[in-house]
Design a protein around this nucleic acid. Sequence first.
RNA 1: GGCGACGUGGCCGAGUGGCUGAGGCAACGGCCUGCAAAGCCGUCCACAUGGGUUCGAUUCCCAUCGUCGCCUCCA
Length: 451
Amino acid sequence: MLRLYDTATREVRELALREPGSVSMYLCGPTVYGPPHIGHGRATLVYDVLRRYLEWSGLRVRLVSNITDIDDSIINRANRENRPWQEITEKCEAVWFEAMGKLGVARPTDVPHATEYVDEMVTMIGQLVDIGRAYTTDDGVYLSVETVEDYGLLVNQHLADMVEGGGDREVFGAENKRHPADFVLWKLAKPGEPSWPSPWGEGRPGWHSECVVMSLDLLGEGFDLHCGGMDLKFPHHENERAQAVALGKRFANHWMHNGFVVDAEGEKMSKSLGNVHNLLDLLEQYDPRAYRMLLLQSHYRGPVSVGQDNIDSSVKALARFDGLARRFGPVSSDADAAVLDAFRTAMDDDLNTPAAMAIVFDAITQANAAADDGDLARAQQLVAAVYSIAEAVGLTFAVGEEVPADAAAKAAALDAARAAKDFAEADALRAELQAAGWTVETTKAGTTLRR
RNA sequence: GGCGACGUGGCCGAGUGGCUGAGGCAACGGCCUGCAAAGCCGUCCACAUGGGUUCGAUUCCCAUCGUCGCCUCCA
């Protein structure tokens, strides 16, 4: 069974399922106000791999991932560009899923929108007010974090230390709040801002209230796994959890956080540093599979540098994958059981995908070697295992594109020239094809072309 | 100030108290080729520093140096 690091307990422990045979997971989705960046790509890929692996293992997975389509940054952009905020959120969501499609990230089973859940959020906030865990100020409704006993569980910090550490930073809304760490549940609207009705006045929900309501509504209390990037651990996830705890509800049983994308200097990619890279650019410039491969060759909790060198290295690694598929094509053998077992062991150990990839590459080498030795049956078992694992982690094989007739004709002419030992002609034809972007592979069996 | 992660071979990156000295990329050698390329096979290089525990430490403990992250934008 899968063992995963749990942020709440700070240990690797078994992912205990609420219902045997099915997994309920929640992943905080994007706030749709701009193009997705590489960090979004990492998070979605990490959990896509997890989801596929779980499904490959025979489990049913319900993956809920929201769209945050109410937020200050959306409103700010709408004001700046003087256009309706809905236009921005719809466009950005379309771009988001287009990027996910290119990455090969399967669509979540549920994609709730914050705007569809405002009534439920108002209800929940009202309950928090009723039981005295939340209070109103002149600009909104706040949660009183001091009423949540274990506030700080996910960051492993005591409330007092956190506040002290705020150091010289300005505490937002300090004058109105009972405690500096109290966070907003409902923001009262300023004139012209999009708003929804509530007992406290027209306004909009705070970010932290959105995810807690949607996750509990769709997955129910005590769902299995809550996922997201490290940077969401605090305050977002801590605050989601605080609301559920304040209401006396069981929240996520297990918390999983993926590491950051860092730049070449090892510094986190973040908006304030200005080193954020657009995901769409990456997908345009490189084989989209390369990012998945790069992440698979790293552990999900560690930092990853998504630079040209690393991506290039992964592109090359993919070539070995594709080479296997080209050499063997579809196989009907049973997959080698030892290889699959080793793969499961690696994955079950806190998703050790680098070890899993090592197993795959070993299997590829062995398959090629077995075929070279004439043991095709053995080779095919290994190939079948590689195919199965590729499916489990969402890697696909590039079969190469169709070769157009004129290029195929040149390849045939090249073979004829070689047969006639007219090497000047053969070299010229090869140069032409290479100039057109083809990788020209000349073997005894004839010339093959691929991009 | 509080909390935490990490320093592995040219690069990326797993892992373990004494045989894995993973795997990928690069490099080098071989096979293949008319020659190349591509592909395949093989080879090579390691555990930040100083102590300690131990029969034995890259792996455990302590210290030092260094890097990075979180402590109300953020995947």
